[in-house]
Each structure stands twice: as C-alpha cells, then as structure tokens.
Design a protein around this nucleic acid. Sequence first.
RNA 1: GGCCCUAUCGUCUAACGGUUAGGACGGAUCCUUCUCAAGGAUUAAAUUCGGGUUCGAUUCCCGGUAGGGUCACCA
Length: 436
Amino acid sequence: MPNNKVVTRFAPSPTGHFHVGGIRSALFNFLFARQNGGTYILRSEDTDKERSKKEYEDEFLELFDWLGLKYDIFFRQSDRLELHQKYIKKMIDDGFAYLSKETPTEEGQREEVIRFKNPNKKVTFNDLVLGDITVDTTDLGDFIIARDMNEPLYHLTVVIDDFEMGITHVIRGQEHASNTPRQILIQEAIGAPRPIYAHLPLILNKEKAKLSKRDESVPPAIEYKKRGYLPDALLNFMALNGWNPGGEQEIFSLAELIEKFDIAKVQKGGGIFNPEKLEWLNKEHIKLLSREEIEKNILEWLPAEIQNPKLIPIIFERISKWGDVKEMVARGELDFFSMRPEYEKNKLIFKNILPEKISENIKQAINVLEGLNEQDFSQENIKSALMSIADKLESRGELLHPVRFALSGLDKSPDPFIIAEILGKNETLSRLQEAI
RNA sequence: GGCCCUAUCGUCUAACGGUUAGGACGGAUCCUUCUCAAGGAUUAAAUUCGGGUUCGAUUCCCGGUAGGGUCACCA
C-alpha cells in the first residue's frame, strides 16, 4: 500500500501585507488536511530577495497563530537553495533547461538566465473545482525558471518544493489556474508526480476585482485582529465565501467546518467580500461566548478609567466586535459615566411642553426615587417608580426625556432606567436636582 | 488583444430536468419604545440574452453579451 496520506500546503509570499483572501486559501488547506488526517504545511515563498521582508512574514505568522490555523510544518524557500540548485543542474544536464543569452531591457536584468526548454504541447489537467482544463503551452515559450544558479524563480521552486514535501493536493486561488500548465511541464521534466489541483474562486472587492495587497477597500488581514474580530467569526465568514455545505446553517465553529467541509461543493465563480455580513456573523459569534468571556473582553477594550462592569450591558447591545467598544468611547457615548453632562437647558424640553411643567415632572421623579433604598436602586425598580408617574402624563416622554437627558446629556442614549442604575442613587438625584 | 475561467435577489448562496425558485446579510414597513441599541413580525428583491435537446429547462449543449484571471529576469 503506497503512502496516500493527504499533504496540503499554503504558500504565501512575504512581499506585502497579507490580505484576507489568503485566509480562505489557508483555511481550506487546513480543513482538508485535518478532515483527512493529513499534514498541513505552511511555506514562506521568499525567493524574491528584494521584495521579501521579515516583517511581512512575521505578520502572517502572527495572523495564523491568532486564527488558530495551526500548521504542522513551516518552511522558508530561501532555506532550500541547495535543493533548488541540484534540480536546475539536473534539468540542464538532462536537456530540459538551458543557459540563455539575453539582451537586458530593464535595470537589474541579467545577460544570461536559465530558461525551460518548452516541449510545446497541450496539457490537460483535472481540477477538483473547475473540471478539466486544457491549455496549449506553446504560447508560454521557453519561460525563465531562474535568473542564475543562486536565484531560482517561482514556478521552479513551487514544483520542486511541492514534490520534495510530498504535497498531494494543491489548493490555491484561481489566479494560479493559468500557471498550472507550466508547472506541470516542469513536473514532467523532473519526474515529479502530478498533485491533485483545486483552484478556489477569487474573493473580489466591491469593484469585482481580485483582492490585492494594495487594496484600499478591504484592509490587510491583520487589521481584523487589531479591530477585535473573533477568529472563529472571520474563519466562518471566509469559509462561506465560495463554499456552502448545502443546508441553511450560517454559524459554524472551526470544528464544524473541519467536519463539514467538502471541496466538491466549492463554488466556481468569484465572490465579493461583504463587510456587513462579517459584522453580523461576528456579533453572532460573540453571543455564543460565555458571559464571563464577553465581560472580560469588553472590559479589556475599555480605557482603564472606566473599566466598570456596570457598563457592560449597554455596551454589549451596541457592538458587533470588540473594537467597537473603543469607538463608543471615542464618540463620547460613555462620557456620562465618568463626568457630569453639560448641555443647554432647552435640550431638557420635550416637544413643546412648558419648562415649568418639565421641572415639576423632574421633582416628582426625585420624590419617588428618594423612596428607593440604595440597594433597591435597580433598573427594574427605577423603571416601575418612574413609569408610575410617566403613565399619568399625556405622554411618557414628558418625564422620560428630561430625566434621560439630565442623566446622559445625549440626544441618543440608553434608557434612563439603566443609566440611573449605573450612576447610583446619589449621582442620579444630584443630576436631576441640577436639571431643575 | 491571445489563452483560461465564470454567470440565481444589491451581496453570500440553496434548488443531484418537474419547487409558489428557498435561506442569510443588507433594505423597507410595523410592533416594542422619550431617543439610541437590542428584540419580534411582515415585506420587496434573482435564474444575463438568443438558439437548441426534452413532455418539461435555473439545471444539459451551442452562440452572443458581461465580468474576472493570466500572459515578468513577482509570487
């Protein structure tokens, strides 16, 4: 029995900020390996010495660590130069490649490069997503596989490394579909078996173009960590772009994805990245967290001065990701908690009710609230106390608006009952007193 | 432009030739409500076009159209 264990790989190049489209490629390679009890390899394609940067590699390493997409093995292509050289030499010896004299047209170009001797034939390969694809490689010409013995190029290193690492399934973005025939040609030249291919549909921006490293509309992947999204939500979201298990379930944990992922159900056409759906999905995943986890996270994202558990309920309802906590603070929505609101008097007026009447209402509110003990000063009790007055009025707003405004100083805010509870009896009464 | 790929609501998608073409996000309306948020209910919205094949095409075939990818001494 031959060794038929599944081996997949994800091979980003550290030449720029890693973008979200790559998350899905990595995820699908990960899922496929895991559900088949196989191996998932992460390979940094850093053969471009000029453009490759350590910081970019660190960035995607940090990203995968955060996402929980654990790889079994990590490689850098630059560490494998000797191996690549061995194959270049062999290909030249065998007549599959040759040294070619060139006339440089751009700066940095060599006068001699190593080209692949194209057999000029039609190549047909089967793709798990796209089906059979046939391409006449004559159009490709004798393409360059290395600048020199020390600088092998992409198509060559991919084929050598995939072969040497025993990659059984190449799952990657559809932009590589048209690269595949020339890689197959190289495989045949070095006697490597052909892996099984699956080319994933592209993830598009709003303009329906491929997501790129310099795309403004969709930020670099690591931004999603910085903005406080949940790894599982991001993964869930990415998985559902281009794939669907068939039912109507929308929320999946990583474990469920591993169980249900089916490469045969991967879509052929590209899909647009939809930020609103991500927001929704992230909120749904937050709701799945325990109360303790939610409280811990909200508190952590709050400035130290107002890290108070009392604020959690009103924050929780208003965020879809942890980073929104910071935005609430930035918008001043929580200012009422740490400082007395300043406002113009007439803001207390509800519709065209007379100021005297408003004052009278607030006085009544103070009276009834004074009847509550410190320890009974809860949202529920405050509500029933206040409502007993408000319900007798023409409109509840005649009381509720001025009370809420006196406490928060905000046009839009949580209801007065919860705010009063958060502020406590003394502060609440004092702010109401001031309003009068 | 050559080659390759794709085509269901605005978006992500379901429907292994027969469905009132389903779900989700977003939108709208209503309820709840002093406001915001959250929640509940309801609702609008799609098979790119033209030919075939078939009793019957979203589904299969051909063509048009549209969109995308790729054609580096990048990956």
